[in-house]
């Protein structure tokens, strides 16, 4: 575990460290691979392979974006969307994880409540947005709620399956060590489910941005979704694309951040 007592040649050391170096390279590449797609798009636009009225070149979109950055016009929209996603996400994830742990650990609770969740889960979240607007009004509260509902179910099912896949041996270890029910919950079920919980968190992050974009199309005066819709209505296609890129980047960065957290908190799992 400490320093190597036997001396290795330069070449041996190089070969020994090669897989780790390749792994770092792959990680770097994974950050930049989306750029390749942009490059292809730029080329097809420059070569007139696509209609520039509907698909302006990335460089044209970037110019529009730069002007908008200079005028500070986008930041309020980004802030509004981030706030809605952040609050709604937390409101859905925490109860989703807790319910998932409970349902995963307790067969009676799973038997009784499981069918209710199974029946509610397939309802498209956007389909009930009018109902949510009716109950929670057109303000931010309705956005929080619609995101929370979407996140809740993803976290519930991922956490539950993580707990249910916990090897029985870990439960036996806990019982033999004298763990109470709450200790088994916190010290065994939760860490055992963590890899699945992170899978859920990443799925839920992606789905949050889908939901917020649609929700802001319909009933908001701010946010990236609203901005995209308003641009479309004035046929400001470049601006619309800036909105699309911005919300995509927000989703991408969120997932990158979650992956960093995952490496930090689930160091025993393979990524």
């Amino acid at each position: 575990m400490s320093a190597v007592p036997v001396t290795l040649t330069e070449d041996e050391l190089r070969r020994l460290k090669a897989p780790a170096r390749r792994e770092r390279l792959f990680r770097l590449a994974s950050y930049f691979s989306p750029l390749l797609l942009l490059l292809l798009w730029e080329l097809s636009s420059q070569l007139n392979l696509s209609d520039r009225r509907f698909f302006p070149a990335p460089s044209a979109i970037a110019q529009t974006a730069w002007r908008m950055v200079l005028s500070f016009e986008l930041f309020d929209h980004i802030g509004a969307t981030l706030r809605r996603v952040g609050v709604g996400y937390a409101m859905g994830a925490v109860p989703g994880i807790v319910m998932g742990l409970i349902l995963g650990l307790s067969r009676p609770v799973r038997r009784v409540l499981g069918p209710i969740f199974s029946a509610l889960y397939p309802v498209p979240k956007i389909a009930i947005l009018p109902l949510i607007l009716l109950v929670f009004g057109v303000g931010d509260a309705s956005k929080f709620v619609v995101i929370a509902i979407g996140v809740f179910f993803l976290m519930l099912y991922n956490t539950m399956s993580g707990v249910m896949q916990t090897p029985q041996i870990y439960m036996d270890v806990a019982k033999n060590a004298g763990a109470t029910r709450l200790q088994t919950f916190r010290r065994i079920a939760f860490p055992a489910a963590l890899p699945s919980i992170f899978t859920g968190l990443k799925l839920a992050a992606g789905s949050s941005y889908i939901i917020i974009a649609a929700a802001e199309f319909l009933g908001a005066r701010s946010g990236i979704g609203f901005f995209i819709w308003a641009s479309w209505q004035t046929f400001a296609v470049s601006r619309m694309f800036v909105g699309i890129v911005v919300i995509s980047a927000m989703g991408y960065l969120t997932i990158l951040a979650l992956e960093a957290l995952e490496r930090r908190f689930v160091p025993w799992a393979k990524h």
Binding site: I169, D172, V173, A177, T180, R187, W268
Partner: peptide
């Protein structure tokens, strides 16, 4: 005291270090 068990299959908890695994029963109490 209740009996302590050593299991046949691997029963160390993967999310804990060696020290934390050994301390597990004490940490519960």
């Amino acid at each position: 005291t209740p009996p302590a068990m050593v299991f046949q299959e691997t029963s160390v908890l993967p999310w804990l270090t060696v020290s934390e695994n050994i301390a597990f029963p004490l940490s519960l109490k």
